[in-house]
Simulated scan of single mutants.
Amino acid sequence: MSKNKPQKNILDRPINRSKNNQISLNFYTFLFSQYVQYTREHTPKTSDLGKKLSKVGESIGYRLFELNTYKDKIRKRELKPTKILLYITDNFWKKIFGKAATLHRTEDERGQYMIVPESSTDNQFTELVFGHLVCSEFVAGLIKGVLNSAEFNAEISPAPYTDDSILCFIIKFQQDILNRESQN
Rank of each mutant, 00 (worst) to 15 (best):
S2I: 15
K3M: 08
N4D: 06
Q7G: 06
K8D: 07
N9L: 15
N9I: 13
L11K: 07
D12W: 04
D12A: 09
R13W: 07
P14R: 03
P14L: 03
P14I: 05
N16L: 15
K19C: 04
N21E: 15
Q22R: 15
Q22T: 15
I23L: 14
S24H: 10
L25Y: 11
N26M: 12
F27H: 11
F27P: 00
F27D: 07
F27E: 08
F30Q: 13
Q34V: 10
Y35K: 15
V36N: 04
V36E: 10
Q37I: 13
Q37G: 11
Q37P: 00
Q37D: 13
T39C: 14
T39N: 14
R40A: 12
R40E: 08
T43N: 05
T43V: 08
P44M: 05
K45G: 00
K45D: 12
T46L: 10
T46A: 08
G50P: 03
K51D: 08
K51H: 05
K51S: 06
S54Y: 04
S54F: 10
K55I: 04
G57E: 00
S59A: 06
S59K: 11
G61A: 02
L64V: 01
F65S: 11
F65V: 03
F65D: 05
K71E: 04
K73Y: 03
K73F: 00
R77L: 11
R77H: 07
E78R: 07
L79P: 03
T82P: 00
T82C: 06
I84V: 13
I84N: 02
L86W: 01
Y87S: 00
I88G: 05
D90W: 02
D90A: 06
N91C: 01
N91Y: 04
K94A: 03
I96K: 07
I96R: 04
F97L: 04
F97H: 09
G98Q: 06
T102G: 06
T102N: 06
L103F: 00
L103Q: 00
R105Q: 12
E109C: 04
R110D: 12
G111D: 02
I115G: 01
V116F: 05
S119Q: 13
S119V: 12
S120G: 08
S120T: 15
T121P: 06
D122I: 09
N123C: 06
N123P: 02
Q124N: 07
L128A: 09
V129H: 02
F130T: 11
G131E: 03
H132W: 03
H132V: 11
L133N: 06
V134A: 10
C135M: 10
E137Y: 03
V139I: 12
V139P: 00
L142H: 01
I143R: 01
K144L: 09
K144P: 01
V146L: 05
E151D: 14
E155K: 15
E155D: 13
I156Q: 08
I156S: 04
P158H: 09
A159D: 12
A159C: 09
Y161V: 07
D163Y: 12
S165P: 04
I166N: 12
I166T: 15
I166Q: 14
L167H: 13
C168G: 14
C168S: 15
F173E: 10
F173H: 06
F173S: 04
N179Q: 14
E181C: 09
N184E: 15
N184A: 10
